[in-house]
């Protein structure tokens, strides 16, 4: 799941300053789950913005609030198209993908990001999320016992651990586990320690082209079957 956190209110207020009528648009999927932009947060932000406006005495914004199921699919966005036509700007509480999807769908509309999209991760407990995947496009989890060194090692090194490991913790932070120690222990438990002996050449990040595209369509010419 994509994890984000809401931007500072000050920043949001600065962004919306030029626009009178703003729709606060939540996203009902990842942003709801990570407490950054679900219906509750939309409503809370709405209240906070109105309160800020009332207390500071500047600004005469009017707000609308909606939440769509997923901002990253144009069909869901279409459902609010007529509502959006009434406003001057969209304050999206979707992730960076949602913001761009909105911008693509409404070419003449300003779309503002209300959250900082932070990482892909999982819930550690209620209200706490940890990063787990960097979407590098070249998954090595088979060799690393299901623990990703790219995201969980501060340096993201592939042939760890480095000399900075101390009592199983990372030199960058005492609270952070050293990913490579975790990998070693788990390989040991799985009796696959020989995987530690393998050497992985440095990855050539320059070779990875962006933006990436994946298609599950089968080419109609049938060339790829050959």
């Amino acid at each position: 799941m994509i994890v984000a956190e809401q931007k500072h209110l000050e920043e949001i207020r600065r962004m919306i300053a030029p626009y009178d009528k703003v729709v606060i648009l939540g996203c009902g999927t990842c942003m709801t789950v990570c407490d950054a932009g679900g219906e509750r947060e939309v409503s809370f932000l709405h209240s906070a913005l109105r309160l800020a406006q009332a207390k500071s005495g500047d600004g005469t914004h009017s707000f609308l609030e909606y939440t769509v199921k997923r901002q990253c699919d144009p069909e869901f966005i279409d459902l609010i198209a007529d509502k959006v036509s009434e406003v001057d700007a969209i304050l999206s509480l979707g992730c960076g993908i949602g913001v761009q999807a909105l911008a693509e769908r409404f070419p003449d509309m300003t779309v503002l990001p209300g959250v900082n999209t932070s990482f892909m991760g999982m819930a550690k407990e209620s209200g706490v999320w940890d990063e787990r995947c960097a979407a590098c496009g070249d998954c090595r989890l088979e060799a690393t016992a299901g623990i990703c060194p790219i995201t969980r090692c501060t340096k993201g090194i592939l042939n760890g651990p480095c000399a900075g490991t101390k009592n199983g913790k990372c030199e960058a932070s005492k609270d952070m586990d050293c990913a490579w120690i975790l990998i070693y222990k788990r390989l040991e438990r799985l009796q696959q320690l020989e995987k530690m002996r393998r050497y992985y050449p440095p990855r050539n990040f320059r070779a990875i082209p962006r933006p990436k595209r994946i298609t599950s369509k089968i080419s109609s010419t049938g060339e790829e079957n050959g």
Binding site: E39, S43, S47, L64, Y66, T67, F76
Partner: peptide, 14 residues
């Protein structure tokens, strides 16, 4: 889509 319009000043979703 699910929406909640707030037409009054206090955001109560009447």
């Amino acid at each position: 889509m699910y929406s909640s319009t707030t037409d009054n000043a206090w955001g109560y979703q009447t």
